[in-house]
Simulated assay, not measured.
Amino acid sequence: MEKTSGPVVVGWDASPEAHLALQQAHARAERESRPLRVVIALGDIGRLSRWADEWTRGLGDEWCEKARKVLAELGRPDLVPDLVVGTPAEVLARESRTASAVVVGAGGHGPLFGRLLGSVSQQLARHAACPLLVVRAGGVAVGPVVVGVDGSPGSMAALEFALAEGAARRVPVDALYVPQHLPGYVYWEGSTPVELLRDLEAYDAEVQASVADVLSRHPEVVAQVRTADGSAAHEITRASENASLVVVGARGTGGLPGLLLGSVANAVLHHSHCPVAVIHAPVEEEGDLPCD
């Protein structure tokens, strides 16, 4: 997967999850020799009462100071977070247009700034123009990178991202494929169940061949293709218990036209036991307010 030259952007709200996100964003920026940008969303400032705007600015300044302390501990004492007007989802979606990755915690402060899991991470998973990493405690630090594959363009982009992560982290990559079964296709017009079964078997072989071809181009990564029965979301979530990272495409083969976040990605985002990367096609951008 092609990388942009943009910074690693992390959303900060002083929550414990934001600490984890900032640590991982810092490590990622160091590993890839990229700038790190810390963003604090001020919410709908200017649309509220004067008292609420002053309180919001005061809270933003407080969070800014807390971020600077963490940054100093990480060896970045000169990095100043940016206070940006707008809700976290809209601010980080704009940032994603020029970022190499956006990193957020799986949960955060609310209600003014919004909880990251549900409102913000869900919206970013739909609209981010770069890889989105949703960080949570759990998983295994040196565990494999698990990636869901189904033959769709999104899942193949996810596979490329997972292989790059596996190489950078020096851990194996576990490509998990859950074949679709006949019962869901019995009403496919113009085909008999026997023909459908053949079609599905041919598709399974095609997916595995495509995945094997991508893996062959990355001999530096220890990787395997694993097939499992059942629900893709359930199997990927289960595999996340022993993974350092799970990678999913924003949409898979089951996605309906116009559906920006697939059901598997949505379920994994909610239930994964480790950080999740959602790989989404690019979008576009806008302005900010420096932190004093």
Rank of each mutant, 00 (worst) to 15 (best):
E2G: 13
V10H: 05
S15L: 11
S15K: 06
L20G: 09
L22N: 05
Q23Y: 05
H26C: 14
A29H: 10
E32H: 12
R34E: 04
L36I: 08
V39D: 02
A52F: 15
D53V: 05
G58W: 09
K69R: 10
A72W: 04
G75H: 09
L79A: 04
R94P: 00
E95Q: 14
E95R: 15
S96Q: 07
V103A: 07
G105V: 07
P111C: 07
L116W: 06
L117I: 14
L124C: 04
R126N: 01
A128H: 03
P131E: 06
A137S: 15
A141F: 05
G143Q: 04
P144F: 00
G148H: 07
G151M: 05
P153N: 07
M156W: 01
A167Y: 06
Y177V: 01
H181R: 14
L182A: 10
W188H: 11
G190R: 05
L197G: 10
L200M: 11
Q208M: 12
D213W: 03
L215K: 03
Q224A: 15
D229I: 02
H234D: 15
H234T: 13
R238K: 14
S244A: 12
S244K: 02
L245R: 02
V246L: 01
T253R: 13
G254Y: 00
G254K: 11
G254V: 02
L260T: 10
N266F: 10
A267W: 02
V268K: 05
L269E: 03
H271D: 10
P282Y: 11
